[in-house]
Amino acid sequence: MKETLLNVKHLTLGVTERDGSVNKAVDDISFEVRKGEILGIVGESGCGKSLTVMTLMGLMKDDVFVMDGQILFGQDDLVRVTPERRRQINGNELSIIYQEPMTSLNPLIKIGRQVGEPLRLHRKDLSDAEIDRMVLELLTEVGIQNPGQIMKSYPHQLSGGMRQRVMIAMASICRPRILVADEPTTALDVTTQAHVLSLLKRVNEEFGTTILFISHDLGVINRICDRVLIMYAGKIVERGRTRDILNHPAHQYTKGLIRSIPTRDQKGKDLICIPGRVPSTMDPREPCPFAPRCGHTMEVCRQTFPECRELAKDHIVYCHMFD
């Protein structure tokens, strides 16, 4: 088995609502990220996937706080690192790209300077000329055809796909150990998305960067991820190798999610969808959060959250149907 790079243990995140009450947005989740893999986190809005990675990056909003748990990364517990140490880690060992690259780029600073910024902060021994040379090289590697000219451009002069390439260059210039990609292709067209996905795959293979890939799209996950975690309402409900999960989903939520996607042979037939709606953090939760929407709810589902069951090697499900 590959070496574990990041270990999330019993992470529980609380959100302070406007009325002062506290709700659990992420409830006791544990998982590990293995060296060199692309791990997907899938779930719908409000399932806690973005909150989890924001906590990983130490970028939670003021109303979110860690109630319990650890995130072990090398010698550090990312939940408890000092701000000084955090500044050494972010952008250097851990970096992130977001859905909308335009909001992550400074509109007033030229691309070349922005992409080189992590190096200026973390590699003080490099001269400006050396940094510029490295930026130029990296921009070429992420598939930008005229890097010299792009370095002198401003973000608004670039297309969406180009901006996302620039973001990927910026996030990987310090050769981070983990690159977090939070819905990086959701705002892009399908053809541009295909380019960005193959670029991320190359970053993973050629630089050896481990990628934590957040998405709601199982098609995208299938194209890029080695393993996947399925999250629902703050809980991990299933995890395993991507092919196993997509071909043999065990949890009723995973099954429902797959059936919700219209495919070739479903034309003219009703989609079998999951009834009800995605719960918000304000809604009262059953012990198994999927119980209200699941077609197979039993007495026990409303009493305890199921234990972890290993169905096959590396395929884990949390559901009382397998008790």
């Binding site: 399908v190 295909a194 996905l197 199982l218 995208v220 299938n222 495919t263």
Partner: peptide, 21 residues
């Protein structure tokens, strides 16, 4: 054809037609 091949499919192991892109 390009549009269709670019849609990531959850059910196939095919990586789409790279050449078209």
């Amino acid at each position: 054809r390009l549009l269709l091949s670019a849609i990531p499919d959850y059910a196939s192991e095919d990586d789409g037609d790279r050449a078209l892109l």
